[in-house]
Amino acid sequence: MEIDYLLVVLLSSLTSASVLIIATLGLAVIFGLMGVVNLAHGEFIMFGAYTALVVTRSGVPFSIAVIVAALVTALFGAIVERVIIRRLYGRLLDTLLATWGLSLVLYQSAVLIFGSVTPGIGMPQSNVRIGDYTISSYMLFLLGVAIVLVLALYWLLTKTGYGIVARAAIQDSETASAIGIESGRINTMTFALGSGLAGFAGAILLPAVPATPGMGFAFVIKAFLTVVVAGPVTLTGTVLAGGLLGSAANIVASFWTTVAGNIVFFMLTMGLLRLYPNGITARWNRKL
């Protein structure tokens, strides 16, 4: 095997891990940090994708559309938290069922509004040559986006006042209220943050993953498994688990079939969970 081929496989593994990490970060905040099982996470991604699509079609540049999509999805998330999630804190399985219901409502609404097939946004395709092979430059760009996004989120949650207060509220809401933190407001903001990240993911991935009503289902499985495998040290865990699972699945997929890649992803998760039922970072001593 030539070196350029290996390099391409490596890069494409890294980029598909990046795609997974980008799609998972929102869930890492909502499920990993807040402990809210949001099965509609995939549909939040779809929500962002369609928002970006609609905004781009109306003539706004794609880069601005991505930001708009993130903000709109965050707002939508805030409403969902106020109307549904808030009543269900502490009732894990009920949250799961309700958000599942929500995911179906969003899916079907998307089918009704946009139909089941939508055109892409027609970004100019450009590729980077590596020896005899090429790799999409947008995919390489996504690798950078993933790195920037993870660092930004880490900064937000560890360095800013909001981040510290939010982490306190999530870790122990009773004690948080006992030092003056109004957990209700903070929880809405954090849920909105997670939703916004999902919306951002849907939008930024749009050139690589076209918007379809069912796109959420594909993401939600892997995102959940990644966060569950990640464990309590959410952000670092997510990056590690996402990197490992995403690239392993990609390697199998590039040598064999996508389905085989998916199956490997699933089997690997099962194996990791059997070894680390509470996630790979369960015994780690880190803050995020």
Binding site: I221, V259, F266, R274
Partner: peptide, 25 residues
């Protein structure tokens, strides 16, 4: 594996969805 209630639910859900994607092809 003494998994938690939540991990259990998510694992069973993904098992179903994986069957769905796998059986299609």
């Amino acid at each position: 594996g003494r998994m938690g209630v939540l991990q259990t639910t998510i694992l069973t859900y993904t098992f179903t969805l994986v069957l769905w994607t796998a059986t299609v092809s």
